[in-house]
Nucleic acid binder design. Structure first.
Length: 426
RNA sequence: GGAGAGGUGGCAGAGUGGUCGAUUGUGCUUGACUCGAAAUCAAGUGUACCUCCGGGUACCGUGGGUUCGAAUCCCACCCUCUCCGCCA
């Protein structure tokens, strides 16, 4: 969540930021409401603190008097304290309600987009950051979409998934399963080479963790829950991996922290179903390798670009046509200040598929989870957090299958040969 | 699942109603000694919020309660460890 301090210091910047998310002038009034509520909270806290301080002084006096055996004087003081206590109770109620009102408001406001983020309402307003300027792979006119290729070569069985679990839970088999494993290992190896520590985290997280990265309180509908145990199935590795550093104070010399993790991801995705979500385009369970960084604020935007270059290298090695979009304000995720999406060209579907989203959250997550570093002057500051997919598997597989189909089978890119153990599917 | 023990500062570990935000040890930082290091000595060393920048308040697993006063007493919950059972 945003820091009240920042809103207070630079309200204009925050309001302008929200306008870039296509907020109306009316909606941005919440910013004033926050400042006003914060004033109320501070006043209430001052009042409460003063009353408590007074109470404490009396209590100490009573203790002294009792020690000296002056019972009657002590009793007299007790009577005076009783009135104070009533006031303190009221002050506490005022403080609690102001605090809660403030938190509710803060939770409802998304991150302020970076100054380089364009204004816009949705996907149509995104800017192409890097276009694909080479030709697309030449496919025969009867090229098959991946859902047909999957059947043809018996790589993934959706019907079996329905039998075992339900729609959106595919069963990978044979070369399909091996391709999955190969990609995971390829990504992890590449990420490790780039300096990211490999993490294998739990797939279930508790409430604190879900709140830390911003899945709670709002987006509970997105997650599968284990209510009996009050746990959540992770929608992305970002959740357990970033929360590793929840409530931590990192010495500045240990920055940046770079981590990578493969996990299955579980998403309920109550939303549109139809042609665009056929096959591997949208699933309830899918595999993803994630990269997470914790950075010094001064270094977070250079780090974001580094992550971009890293993901580009992965796609280049996989020989996939891709483009990079800079998301506009309206399309940028709630917690993010700046997001780039990677899309690969899906030759048979003749459309771009999102395979990675790389974001800088600045202090939005770290403020929520108290992820801090100690600077050279020994001051404690919020760190910046970033993450990105490197990469999400299903759509990578879709593009690989579609773009590389030949009469003799599906060609596997060279970089994967040592992982798959085969050069073609078929 | 059953039985027991326990959750206190980076770590270890005291503290069973008042001057305890907390003894002590250790670690860490700085200084002294030293050619340098070790050892030794001295000082410092939690977090958050508020502030008239003097200071104030809260936090001893979490939430309630008793009391003028709670780390300490009471209630509920959560978690960890040990043993048994089950199990990859």
């Amino acid at each position: 969540m945003l820091q009240v301090k920042n809103i207070r210091e630079d309200k204009k910047r925050i309001v302008n930021g929200l306008r870039k998310r296509n907020w109306t002038a009316q909606q941005t009034k919440v910013v004033d409401q926050i400042l006003q509520t914060d004033d109320e909270r501070r006043a209430a806290q001052k009042k409460l603190d003063d009353l408590l301080a007074e109470n404490k002084r009396f209590s100490a006096q009573i203790g002294q008097l009792m020690g000296q055996g002056k019972q009657s004087e002590a009793e007299a003081l007790k009577a005076r304290v009783a009135a104070l206590k009533e006031q303190a109770k009221q002050a506490e109620e005022q403080f609690d309600s102001a605090k809660k009102a403030l938190d509710d408001l803060l939770y409802s406001v998304p991150n302020c987009p970076h100054k380089s983020v364009p204004k816009g309402a949705g996907a149509d307003d995104n800017k192409v950051h890097r276009a694909w300027d080479k030709p697309f792979p030449a496919l025969p006119p009867d090229a098959l979409p991946h859902w047909d290729l999957i059947k043809k070569y018996n790589l993934i069985d959706f019907d079996l998934g329905v039998k075992l679990t339900g729609a959106g839970f595919p069963v990978y088999r044979g070369q399909g399963a091996k391709l999955q494993r190969a990609l995971i290992q390829f990504f992890l190896d590449e990420n490790t080479k780039a300096g990211y520590e490999e993490i294998l985290p739990p797939l279930l997280v508790n409430e604190d963790s879900a709140r830390g990265t911003g899945q709670l309180p709002d987006k509970e509908a997105q997650m599968y829950t284990c209510e009996r145990d009050n746990l959540y199935l992770i929608p992305t590795a970002e959740v357990p991996v970033t929360n590793i550093l929840r409530d931590a104070i990192i010495p500045e010399k240990d920055l940046p922290v770079r981590m990578t993790a493969y996990t299955p991801c579980f998403r309920r995705e109550a939303g549109a179903w139809g042609a665009h979500v056929r096959g591997l385009n949208r699933l309830h369970q899918f595999d993803k390798v994630e990269i997470v960084r914790v950075e010094h604020p001064e270094n977070s935007y250079p780090a974001l670009l580094q992550m971009l270059r890293h993901v580009q290298r992965l796609l280049t090695k996989l020989e996939l046509p891709y483009r990079i979009l800079l998301l506009c304000g309206g399309d940028t995720g709630f917690a993010s200040a700046k997001t780039f999406d990677f899309e690969v060209w899906s030759g048979a579907q003749q459309r771009w598929l999102e395979v990675s989203s790389v974001s800088n959250f600045e202090t939005f997550q770290s403020n929520r989870m108290q992820l801090r570093y100690r600077d050279a002057d020994n001051r404690i500051q919020l760190a910046h957090t970033l993450n990105g997919s490197a990469l999400a598997l299903p759509r990578i597989v879709a593009a690989l299958l579609e773009n590389n189909q030949t009469a003799e089978g599906i060609r596997i890119p060279k970089a994967l040969h040592k992982y798959t153990g085969f050069k073609t599917i078929g």
